[in-house]
């Protein structure tokens, strides 16, 4: 439990620092939500609402990374999910029919789950490296999405209930936040109430020991990629519902990179093993807040790429034992003569 808290400490501190910066620039309105027209609003609520698709994808990515894998195709799967649902809705005569909306959503989720399972099968049964296996759909996926939409950007009527998925609210809380948080809770329960989480960490932490202990690693791997695909599809639905359209080219562009970044910020190592769903969620909020912070402190929005690059760089270096050794070298070389209190601190 204490190690869990320690892992989460850094991301939480970074998030608090970002919030403090924003509050000091724009005042407490940044963090305090208010109810407007029966819905919660405010800068921070908006950040959460906007971050919901990223959170969904990052959660799936966390599980994949826990197995020593990676899924590069989530951005493309996002676009496919969005394209299928929107296209199906605009093809129908009545865009508000409840049955239509449900079947559109269901179809999109089934297809994206199948895509995820396909990725998992390539990794687990064909023995292809995850980065290579998922690269295929990263490249072809947006083409498939365009195939679905016929190269157009399908626009769903604003009156269609489908848009509520992105714009609506439940008990004043924006629906995307509700869905993303429900997914967080569901995955946390799925992994921590069953033994799935432990077996995942075992497979990611030491595949050979897991095999000798009798764990069915292949089935678990496929399941995890399936969940990741499903999450990406759901994220695509929310994103499309929010915009009321599905852009096969730009929908979810680079979201896989943001998701990987969020997972790493959240304390899950890219080498697999222990994973932290809550840490990932904090990582997502950090990324979302970072984007607002850049604008609030008066920089142009173009800075967000640069800021992200710096974050990736720092996180990657901090996770490198060689870098830590190199940085700490000057301190270690010093003779251990000084007061014993310092030695304790060094440990």
């Amino acid at each position: 439990m204490s190690s869990y808290a320690k892992r989460l400490m850094w991301p939480v501190l970074v998030l608090v620092a970002l919030i403090v910066i924003n509050v000091s620039v724009t005042g407490f309105d940044f963090i305090v939500p208010h109810v407007n027209d029966g819905r919660l609003s405010g800068a921070f609520v908006n950040i959460l609402r906007r971050s919901a698709p990223l959170l969904l994808i990052a959660l799936g990515m966390t599980l994949v990374i826990a197995t020593k894998g990676i899924d590069l195709s989530v951005g493309a799967v996002y676009a496919i999910g969005a394209a299928i649902a929107c296209q199906m809705i605009i093809d129908a005569p009545d865009q508000s029919a409840a049955g239509l909306i449900f079947s559109a959503i269901a179809l999109a989720l089934v297809v994206t789950a199948v895509i995820g399972a396909w990725n998992g099968t390539m990794v687990a049964y064909f023995g292809i490296q995850p980065i290579v296996a998922t690269l295929i759909l990263m490249i072809a996926g947006r083409g498939i999405a365009q195939l679905v939409t016929g190269g157009q950007i399908p626009k769903v009527e604003d009156s269609s209930p489908f848009t509520q998925l992105g714009r609506g609210e439940l008990f004043t809380v924006p629906l995307p936040i509700v869905i993303a948080v429900l997914m967080l809770v569901a995955l946390a329960l799925l992994t921590r109430r069953t033994a799935l989480g432990m077996l995942l960490e075992s497979v990611g932490g030491n595949p050979e020991a897991s095999r000798l202990a009798g764990i069915r690693a292949k089935g678990i791997t496929v399941l995890v990629y399936l969940v990741c695909g499903l999450c990406a599809g759901l994220a695509g639905l929310i994103g499309a519902a929010n915009l009321g359209s599905a852009d096969a080219n730009n929908g979810g562009l680079w979201i896989e990179l943001d998701a990987i970044l969020a997972v790493v910020i959240g304390g899950t190592a890219l080498l697999g093993g222990r994973f932290y769903l809550l840490g990932t969620a904090i990582g997502v909020v950090i990324i979302g807040t970072l984007e607002d912070t850049i604008i609030n402190v008066g920089l142009s929005s173009q800075w967000q790429f640069t800021a992200k690059a710096i974050v990736v760089f720092v996180v990657a270096l901090l996770q490198s034992p060689e870098f830590r050794g190199w940085i700490l070298k000057p301190f270690k070389r010093r003779p251990a003569a000084p007061a014993p209190a310092k030695e304790v601190a060094a440990k």
Partner: peptide
């Protein structure tokens, strides 16, 4: 990946 983000950002700037 750092380069991917960094240089796209600098280009836009």
């Amino acid at each position: 990946l750092v380069g991917l983000f960094l240089f796209r950002g600098l280009t836009l700037q």
